[in-house]
Design a binder for these strands. Sequence first.
DNA 1: TATTAATCGTACCAGTTGGTATCGATGTCA
DNA 2: TGACATCGATACCAACTGGTACGATTAATA
Lengths: 215, 215
Amino acid sequence: MSADPAPRGRLPAAARADRRDAILDAAEALLAEAGYAQTTMAEIARRAGASKGTLNGWFGGREGLLAAVMERNADRAAARVAEALEAGGPPRAVLTGFAEGLLGLLTGPSSVALNRAAMGTPELAALLLASGRYRIGPLVERYLARLAGDGMLVLDDAGEAFAVLYGLVIRDTQIRVLLGEPQPGPAARRRQAEAAVEAFLTLHGNGRTTARGGG
Amino acid sequence: MSADPAPRGRLPAAARADRRDAILDAAEALLAEAGYAQTTMAEIARRAGASKGTLNGWFGGREGLLAAVMERNADRAAARVAEALEAGGPPRAVLTGFAEGLLGLLTGPSSVALNRAAMGTPELAALLLASGRYRIGPLVERYLARLAGDGMLVLDDAGEAFAVLYGLVIRDTQIRVLLGEPQPGPAARRRQAEAAVEAFLTLHGNGRTTARGGG
DNA sequence: TATTAATCGTACCAGTTGGTATCGATGTCA
DNA sequence: TGACATCGATACCAACTGGTACGATTAATA
């Protein structure tokens, strides 16, 4: 990918940002390919064409580097979820789009690698929880509450409703992939997302505006 | 607990089995307290009053030892699930008992520690999947199929139904605990199990024999 | 009681890793 | 163009870990 030889001397601000991203890319890719234990500072440096000294200087050690990878990933994930929820259109379609995206996200190589890494380091685990679950959850809960306010859903507690939706969508898929099963393909994810939303609307829909095939 | 000084010489078969269990106890406790990375052969040996040589001789290295812990745990878990399913009584009660047990199990200290450990070692992950998920799943599916055969549930695919039930019960609770949140207390687990079974029966019950409060 | 096998305790070794220091090279900026 | 900050490469160190070897000790067993 970046076959450019790594620059040597001082870097201007813009180039520095690119370079930082390239280092995070290398770390993320290595993490996904080789796992947490094999993701050594030396190997990250080699792939990024950087030196261990620079890595330590920029990120403050291995944990800081992985934390940076995690935060970048969480930012992207949150953006994707927000986009799916703000897509507009009938609730069934919006929810299915969200569900499909979430399922693909949580079982994707990067998320899987980062979750595995987090299991071995309490600090990283806390960061993953804060920058992932606790950012995405409220987004969805707000959307569900809005639907309820518009009379399109029936629910007491948006948090509880999100938990149910999450369970219906993810089932045991994430933990199985974390334990080594291959990620379900796009078609399977689509089916699973549709089934989940169907069940969710059976439980929480008002039976009219959210009816299947209805506008 | 076993404050007995570790025996020195040759051991008869019965004592050997006890000793083996004591070693596994030590490893399991250490794993739960200190985490995978801190669970070193030296510390296990120290706690069990054994020598590293014996540990390696009996279990064939660290991975083998952890595998033994994992299998013992899986055996116990499978037995508990089977017992819950064979308890007899109205489906709602049986399912709630199963759900409550599963939730407690998967968020318990031992299961959490073993899952975290498995995330770092593909071999252990495969073992956990095989001895856990793939043993418990079929038990539940058979039970659900039996209920369907008796006309008490409506379902096309027992595997699919189990997946839905699992999702409703576990939600994101397991992954959150794996990432460091405290285990929900017994009351919360009970509530969550009841809500899950309620939703499951709404989706798959026949509306009569499984009705709330009904026999 | 003598024999034998198993076990503990300890020391030891090889391999690995994160992090730091040093030095020459390179690009920026005045 | 020159001074300077930064970077890559390399070497290096300390700490840790899994696993093995060896002698002393203990208990089962004949």
